[in-house]
């Protein structure tokens, strides 16, 4: 994580208001290639707003986003995806009644042939692609790609979403409370998966949570938010979990 590299993504003075609420005030931070950034703050701190601005769902009132030094003008999650940025939320991203393979390729289905306006699916290729995703996330036993997502556990669903992002060559994956609804065991597995993908594939992550302890062992750097204000940014080697906790409680960065 040498900072000599150019940042993969850079937020510069981002501001956003919702009526009287100032959800984000002059937020700046960068994510470098291969970096895992923990974006931490209490409820209503503005974490999800940052994500939605990056995804092009909200337009910031002020500020700029740069992708590899170039000013980006993202207007939809698809556009972000094309720029190599994917999003994993707690409970959206999958159509639960559909098979896994139809979910992996949702919106980007593999077409076998076209007859006029009708595009026939290549379900075999979609099954094969699904197995590739299994391989990426290290699913040990073989789940039939025809299995409905509703039959999967919460952890498996999160794993599928992360694997799908990697399959589509994401360079940065933004995780918004990715393990909130998971069992302790599954939390560990998802966190291991994130660390693994970061090490092996060099993928960057923004890991959003309100619980510093959840992200402490995973992230390289922490950006702390409090009611729309960035109270600090600090590398893991320069702090400790208790100091970070204190900072969040006090609303200002506690230095060593």
């Amino acid at each position: 994580m040498s900072e000599k590299k150019n940042p993969l993504i850079k937020f510069e003075n981002i501001g956003k208001r919702f009526g009287r609420i100032e959800a984000l005030k002059d937020i700046s931070f960068s994510v470098f290639p291969g970096e895992i950034v923990g974006l931490v703050g209490d409820n209503g701190a503005g974490k999800t707003t940052v994500v939605k601005i990056l995804a092009g769902i909200y337009k910031p009132d002020k500020g700029k986003i740069y992708i590899e030094e170039e000013e980006a003008n993202i207007t939809s999650p698809e556009e972000a995806r094309r720029a190599g940025i994917d999003f994993v939320h707690q409970d959206i991203g999958l159509a639960e009644d559909l098979e896994i393979r139809r979910n992996i390729f949702l919106g980007d289905e593999i077409v076998a042939k076209r007859v006029g306006p009708i595009e026939f699916l290549d379900l075999d290729k979609m099954s094969k692609g699904t197995k590739t995703v299994y391989h990426i996330i290290g699913i040990t036993s073989d789940i039939d790609p025809k299995t409905e997502v509703s039959e999967l556990s919460g952890g498996q669903r999160q794993g599928i979403k992360i694997g799908r992002a990697v399959y589509y060559k994401a360079r940065l994956i933004v995780l918004d409370e990715p393990v909130r609804a998971l069992s302790v065991r599954e939390r560990g597995k998802i966190k291991n998966l994130i660390v693994d993908l970061n090490k092996k594939e060099g993928i960057s992550f923004i890991y959003i949570t309100h619980n510093i302890r959840e992200v402490y062992d995973v992230a390289h750097k922490f950006v702390l938010l409090d009611r729309g204000i960035k109270i600090g940014e600090i590398k893991k080697e320069e702090t400790s979990v208790s100091r970070l906790e204190e900072s969040i409680i006090k609303g200002e960065l506690v230095s060593p």
Partner: peptide, 27 residues
Amino acid sequence: IILFYTKFGNHILAVGSNAESSLSRGI
């Protein structure tokens, strides 16, 4: 056949199953 073996059909089912998720995938 259209519902289960075409892109259009897949989108119909996906949107009915979870509109927000479908939207996040560009549908």
